[in-house]
Design a protein around this nucleic acid. Structure first.
Lengths: 144, 144
DNA sequence: GGCAATTTGACAACGATTCTCACTCGCAGT
DNA sequence: ACTGCGAGTGAGAATCGTTGTCAAATTGCC
């Protein structure tokens, strides 16, 4: 469940998207760390990075912040092959992976055609809020 | 008592992939369960299914068997949105699933265009023996 | 039949993520 | 600036999926 319901916070009538979200030191630090380090990073990596920077932030807070950012669509979340959640600063295009069965070498590929197709198919069946996962497996040239 | 007995040294050198693999009841049961239930299933689901069937198999064994099968390329493994490992029997008709996030209602869809696209992309990067997984998620009309 | 390597299974160990809860801090009103 | 309250935080417990351990059971092959 991705419930986003929050208690009747009477505070209404202020910032649009940021209703009830406080820009605390920790949140800024997490968002910042993720911006500085590009590419995908796990919550634990971010936590460690913050520690090295001296900006100590609790692990639980890092998890919460990362999740909130992902929910808000400000960052992308996907899962590594180990099943760990990894995040990256948003903006880059949505893409898929072409993975080698033997060595694991991965190539990121884009497919506007696929994006269009999935949306069309879902639409055709009346499904809304579409998302999808696509992974391609094969044996890379070096492993042939 | 070491070099006296020598296991089937070059016994009918054909069973390449199955070197040292015994077709035990448990392994057959797991492979069977996965074949019967199509679609993706987690190790725990398979374990539970086997339990219901009366074919009791240890959880650890299910994990090991599934992993071995995946390594051998006999089944596909990917990760659910929760990060859990899910497997499916390989070699079934090429179709994908359009799943409803709320009620789970699933529609099987085919996409020759996607098949062609994935093959083309893989080819372009020199990858051979291509296979892929694609799942589409959305909210079905009844759940809107 | 009988032996040794492979497998199995119950359970401990693990690592990632979430939950709990007492304590702190930012924000708005006074 | 002072204060109250709820959002936010953090340390550690609790979950949960998955892997490691090891004695006992099973299987293949002589």
């Amino acid at each position: 469940m991705t419930s986003t319901d929050r208690p009747p916070a009477g505070t209404a009538g202020k910032g649009a998207e940021l209703s009830g979200v406080r820009p605390t030191r920790q949140r800024l630090a997490v968002a910042d760390a993720l911006s500085d380090a590009d590419g995908f990073h796990s919550a634990q990596e971010i936590h460690e990075l913050l520690g090295r920077r001296g900006e100590s932030v609790g692990l639980a807070t890092v998890y919460r912040t990362l999740q909130r950012l992902a929910d808000a669509g400000e960052i992308d979340m996907m899962r590594s092959e180990d099943g760990e959640a990894i995040y990256r600063r948003c903006s880059m295009t949505h893409h898929h992976h072409l993975v080698c069965r033997s060595c694991g070498r991965t190539v990121e590929v884009e497919g506007p055609a696929v994006e269009r197709w999935t949306t069309a198919i879902a639409d055709e069946h009346g499904y809304a809020e579409v998302s999808h996962t696509l992974e391609i497996f094969g044996t890379c040239p070096d492993c042939r």
